[in-house]
């Protein structure tokens, strides 16, 4: 599994490659739009880390060409601008995520892995938080290596929370994951499932905590 890094600052690109390597990812690095095109034409990459300001043009051009070919390779944008419009434009043009420089390498890898674990992407196996593991292939859950069985709906809630580790999942997203878009949901049904899941995780000694962000959604974090 190779990653493509398009970054024109040599130092940063080298450091990124080193960081990715130590996290277990090999990467090719290039610094222009032209080189990026050539690389994408000859090699299949698991994901792209794309800087927006490149010497021979805008990184967004690469992104647009990719999406135009119906290529859904995850693209994570890096930008030094962080301007009012840049983010909106990047996401509208089909970027999967967006990081403003300077960023923590840890954050970059977490965001990258979140993309790689999406259905249909290459890193689809085990999600983990603390001593809690979730295998997305067979939807099995384990705490300290011991398998535990949750109800189908609790499992669905756990999966969507773990896929968005460290980030808030809206109430609507949780609803959709459980019931699909067509079914009507009772107003407090989600509360009930989250409550049950939380209770069981505590009972079973999971070092992961499900937080309710009132009016916003839910979030799973590692317990400290």
């Amino acid at each position: 599994m190779r990653l493509l890094v398009i970054e024109d600052n040599d130092e940063l690109a080298d450091l990124l490659a080193r960081g990715l390597k130590s996290a277990g990812y090999d990467s090719d690095r290039f610094s222009t739009v032209g080189e990026a095109r050539t690389a994408l034409a000859t090699t299949s990459y698991a994901a792209l880390i794309l800087d927006l300001g490149l010497p021979d043009g805008d990184g967004l051009a690469v992104l647009r060409e990719l999406r135009h070919r119906n290529d859904s390779t995850p693209v994570l944008l890096l930008t030094a601008r962080g301007g009012l419009q840049d983010k909106v434009t990047g996401l509208r043009d089909g970027a999967d995520d967006y990081l403003v420089k300077p960023f923590a390498l840890e954050e970059l890898i977490a965001r990258l892995e979140a993309q790689l674990r999406r259905p249909g992407q290459l890193l689809g196996n085990v999600l983990s938080i603390g001593n809690l593991e979730f295998d997305t292939r067979n939807r099995q859950c384990a705490i300290d290596g011991v398998s535990h069985v949750f109800s189908a709906r609790e499992t669905a809630v756990l999966e969507i929370l773990m896929r968005s580790k460290g980030r808030v999942v809206s109430k609507r997203q949780v609803e959709d994951s459980i019931f699909g878009l067509s079914e009507e949901v009772g107003s407090n049904a989600i509360e009930v499932y989250v409550h049950r899941l939380r209770k069981q995780l505590i009972e079973k000694g999971a070092k992961a905590q499900v937080h309710t962000i009132r009016g916003v959604g839910y979030l799973i974090t590692e317990e400290k």
Binding site: N9, L12, G19, P102, L105
Partner: peptide
């Protein structure tokens, strides 16, 4: 932001 980014990543690795 670019030098800060280099610095941050250098410290990270």
């Amino acid at each position: 932001r670019t030098p800060l980014s280099v610095l941050r990543t250098r410290v990270d690795v």
